[in-house]
Design a protein around this nucleic acid. Structure first.
Lengths: 184, 184
DNA sequence: GTCTATATTCCGATAGAC
DNA sequence: GTCTATCGGAATATAGAC
């Protein structure tokens, strides 16, 4: 994978999180990297290709991270997940799900499928984490683990949205309360 | 208030919820209403004026509705709020907070202030509802009412986002579980 | 792999007639 | 209050030289 390609993806990732997918342009990529917009098109012919590239990178990073946490107690794994969101909160970012889901109807079909794949992967991991954590007496919660994963992931996604509007003390309040709810 | 103005606001509201604020144009308003884009500019000189008009309308509707629920038991009030979100879910909409918060950095300052005002108003109402409901032994939850309101409102906002991506059974699962958590 | 140059389309917005 | 006409700019994208 070329270094230029990596730089483009990294900057696009940031722009999606800060301004939204429909609100940034090839020029916003090209100018800071000191290239021409045509050069970006060489690496990513269409904007959807760029979006898919960003999601693939994010999914790969997510898999690497969760693999590293595999042997930890489940509450540590959950705290690590929350830390990922916290760092984004501090950087003024929102998560890719929270940024791309609102624009979903405007996305090309193959990019829509990628967004779906990303959401499913994260929910699947969190569901397993919660399920195992309850089995190992580290979590307590009502209902099944899938539904609980939905509640927690929506808290985290939208906490970044509300932090953007109301200031990022919001994130700490939400993440601390949700941990307090579920930890034994 | 002119009828044309009302129609423009109503359509803009729908477009913001379905495609996002930055993804619709004056043409998307003008064509279905069989006017010219210049006519829309007469009613709303800039796009931010239109956005602010939409939010004001939504805030007014919210106040009217919550006033109507005032005398009901708190769990009925909360269920009414959830119903508002449910109807949007069924219509393929997301809520204004979930649509405008991701685009927040790209909005004009006066529109940013309106978005803030809307979020604060909804959170304020929900906080009071939860506080009173706990006092009247209708709700049970840990922590203070403000934090609980943040958890619930983020569940509702992002449930619409996830419903868009993964299908709208998501909304029912989230709303049922959150009620089950809090009702006595 | 990156460039220049350009095509095409669309955007928000304004001027001025009616 | 709505129209026609148009401006200035920005967007995505492509052709073809280097």
């Amino acid at each position: 994978m070329s270094e230029t390609r990596e730089k483009i993806i990294s900057l696009a990732d940031k722009l999606i999180r800060v301004n939204g997918f429909n609100a940034f342009s090839y020029k916003d990529i090209a100018t800071p990297l000191e290239m021409k917009n045509a050069a970006v098109h060489y690496h990513f012919p269409g904007k959807a290709d760029l979006g898919i590239g960003v999601i693939n990178e994010d999914l790969q990073r997510f898999t690497q991270q969760t693999n590293k946490w595999q042997k930890l107690p489940e509450e540590e794994q959950l705290k690590h997940l929350i830390d990922v969101f916290r760092k984004h909160s501090q950087a003024g970012n929102i998560c890719l799900m929270g940024s791309l889901a609102p624009d979903y109807n405007t996305l090309a079909p193959d990019m829509q499928r990628k967004v779906q794949e990303m959401c499913r992967a994260i929910l699947h991991w969190l569901t397993n984490c919660l399920e195992n954590g309850r089995k190992n007496k580290r979590f307590k919660f009502k209902g099944n683990a899938e539904n609980r994963a939905l509640l927690i992931i929506t808290n985290l996604q939208a906490s970044l949205l509300m932090s953007r509007v109301l200031g990022n003390t919001i994130f700490s309040r939400i993440s601390e309360q949700l941990l307090d709810d579920i930890l034994i």
